[in-house]
Write a protein that binds this DNA or RNA. Structure first.
Lengths: 245, 245
DNA sequence: TCGTACAAAAATATCGATTTTTTTATGGAC
DNA sequence: GTCCATAAAAAAATCGATATTTTTGTACGA
């Protein structure tokens, strides 16, 4: 075992993998487990690791160049995100997807986010308002796609999009609910990636976000909720046909 | 802290840990990881492992008599239930509790379960109705406490109580939402255990369950929701004073 | 042809030792 | 006394080897 270490120590340029972390702490060197967790997570969301695929420890161990323990631990952690399934004595596998499950996901997201949004609108203070404005602005400043021609997703947009939606509901008063919404959001991203669909039907998503932002700031819970659900439903219905196998 | 060990080894009379399992599969021999998972979970819920307590691998390894890998894996799995926290490079610890967090938990439970109950009432078929009736009946057939004098909780009642509440919302149409409710329920059990309070104020919990059951079967979503939230709020407010540290 | 039993192979699960990192303890310097 | 550096101890993380279990493949008999 020569010097894999030196190489690994350098990782993590600080771009920060959103909230997708295996632990709470952030400072100090990153453990092999955390690294494996992040990479596995990315590979599952991006679809490199296919739904239903068996996750053989030995294979991953070689591929990611770590021991069995970190791999197994990372997979165990991924279990909570519903990205990985664990079967006693028969290892791990990537969670399956289906049109039915996607429908459920969409429905559940709408339920939870609507509730969170209403509470947020009810209780959000001026700091929340400012954060919403800022998040909306930041989202509007980056293009949806890296290249308008080939419709390759812009990671910066993805990140800001999530941040905008999470900020909207951040004042709901329940960290638990926020966590659930966060999970569902990431699940949804996975479905979006898997659909393989790059371009969306011509609709002005930016305008939708703007309207949503305005309604929230105007404390119009009814309107905001309606816009949010419509926002999700529209994307959802579009994706639905793409799934299945 | 001398020999808590002997005590620990005896736990788990085989009464089956509800749905608290580390994996999906059920047949075949149970892995060390699953065993450790179950025991750790029980010990945390029951309060043997105190909130905030550091979970030293070596200690647990000796106490539970398994290697480091199963312990670490089990702890990683417990992370998803919010029973254990993981800190990169500094191990695991039992999740903390606080009155504030309990309030949040209670609130979130009400939000989610109310939604689930309404959906369940809206979509539940005759099979659901029958299951509800059955669950309510079974719950009514066992005493709340093992001994009416010392108010020691009756595990059978605990299990049936959970089953009743989960059955009520089982027709909500979202496995995801059910999972969340399940998690929150178990969190709540932990708080109940930690409060150390055995006896509840004189109120007819059985009657409350009966009324809730009736309202659900009568498809009276408004009434059922109100009863459910009241049911939780009452217990919650009672427990609140007991917590803190 | 099908089902079964058994052996070989593959993969999982587990262990115990080793390496790394964090925590604790100690000893000045200011 | 407080701050910092450093050494020692403790704990976490990781590895690689071994033990178990599941899966696969094959021959046999109904």
């Amino acid at each position: 075992m020569p010097d894999r270490k030196a190489e690994l120590k350098v990782i993590d340029g600080g771009s920060a993998a959103d909230n997708a972390s295996a632990n709470k702490d952030s400072s100090g060197p990153e453990s092999m487990t955390s690294q494996a967790y992040t990479r596995l997570r990315e590979d599952i969301i991006s679809g490199i690791l296919r739904p239903g695929q068996k996750l053989k420890i030995e294979e991953l161990r070689l591929q990611y160049d770590v021991g069995t323990s970190p791999i197994r631990e990372a997979l165990s952690l991924l279990t909570s995100d519903h990205f990985v399934e664990r079967l006693d004595q028969r290892g791990f596998k990537v969670s399956n997807v289906s049109e039915e499950e996607f429908g459920e996901l969409l429905k559940t997201r709408c339920w939870l986010e609507e509730k969170a949004l209403r509470e947020s609108i009810l209780h959000g203070d001026s700091s929340w308002e400012e954060q919403v404005v800022l998040a909306a602005y930041r989202l509007s400043r980056v293009p949806r796609y890296e290249n308008e021609n080939d419709f390759v997703a812009n990671p910066e947009w993805e990140q800001r999009h999530k941040h905008f939606h999470m900020t909207l509901i951040s004042a709901c008063g329940s960290a638990l609910l926020l966590k659930f919404c966060d999970q569902l959001y990431d699940q949804n991203v996975r479905y979006r990636q898997l659909s393989g669909k790059k371009a969306y039907p011509t609709r002005d998503i930016t305008a939708e976000h703007g309207a949503l932002c305005d309604a929230a700031l105007a404390r119009d819970a009814e309107l905001a909720s309606r816009l949010l659900v419509e926002h999700y439903d529209r994307t959802g219905n579009f994706l639905k046909n793409q799934i299945g196998k």
